[in-house]
Design a protein around this nucleic acid. Sequence first.
DNA 1: CCTATTTGTTAGGTTAGCCTAACAAATAGC
DNA 2: GCTATTTGTTAGGCTAACCTAACAAATAGG
Lengths: 161, 161
Amino acid sequence: MNNIVASIEDLSPKMQDYLEAISILKKQNERVRSVDLSTLLKVKRPSVTEALGVLSQKGLVVHERYGGVELTKQGAALAESVYQRHKTLTRFICEILGVDSKIASEDACKMEHAMSPKTFGRFYKLIEFMDKKSKNQEPQWLTHFKTYCKKGKVISCTKKR
Amino acid sequence: MNNIVASIEDLSPKMQDYLEAISILKKQNERVRSVDLSTLLKVKRPSVTEALGVLSQKGLVVHERYGGVELTKQGAALAESVYQRHKTLTRFICEILGVDSKIASEDACKMEHAMSPKTFGRFYKLIEFMDKKSKNQEPQWLTHFKTYCKKGKVISCTKKR
DNA sequence: CCTATTTGTTAGGTTAGCCTAACAAATAGC
DNA sequence: GCTATTTGTTAGGCTAACCTAACAAATAGG
């Protein structure tokens, strides 16, 4: 039963993570092995076998006994969308909040699954806004915020509104 | 066994939510009933009974059969810290991302549990920074961002860096 | 080519958090 | 004060995601 996935929302957070991981490994390795997923996701091998069973049943991966893992077209599309969300949030946490990229990526992976599309959309807009507004230069408020994080001091506005 | 809670990290996300909910209801109602928790958290009554069992066992609530729920000193302290996190994130999502407050609060509740203390700390700093920097006036970059969200247009900087 | 190691699978278990159905206690309204 | 309703508890189940132990298949390296 319940094996039709209309959108990313129909997949549990964990299954989203498995999909994303397969996609990431595919970009690096050509052949995606169960043990690599196990390492990347920090779960034991039987858990991977089990998850792959679920994903095949939903038609998102193709995976023959003792064979490599392939994403179906739909699986790849979903994985890509998960990856994009992950990337956006990682950028926010890293570039705006100034958290180091490893922690940023880990937190992004969890936060992805904890917000409505609306809120995610705004994170996306915020990053997009920053990119468009200031191509190479960090915006001033951000520089000030980072100074505040380090020194605890607020740099007063030079121009009074 | 495992019934010593040294910090908020030792409590599952759900248990944190129960604690926070008890604390919120207490502020409104004096007597906190199981059914109110059930309504607020959108779970059935037996789930509440079960959760209260876990929390009492950890010494965070006092709850006699068919009686009201009380937070212990430690329980109240933990609840307060959950509440503060929740409030900070809600403010971020609402005031900065511009998401309406109901969704903001719901998302904050989930996101609370999905980030490291480091990342949360930066969200906290960001809100603090905003409060200190501009008492009543919204900072300019934020106004510009909000315009961007509505119109999709970037307002160019009047002052070139 | 044959064995040792690595990788994948199966079987069976655990846990947290939820549920329904049924009953017990408490409260409310006549 | 008694009955009807509401609230709380118990018992018993379910599911997702993990685990270990044990075995099976594949691969690697002499």
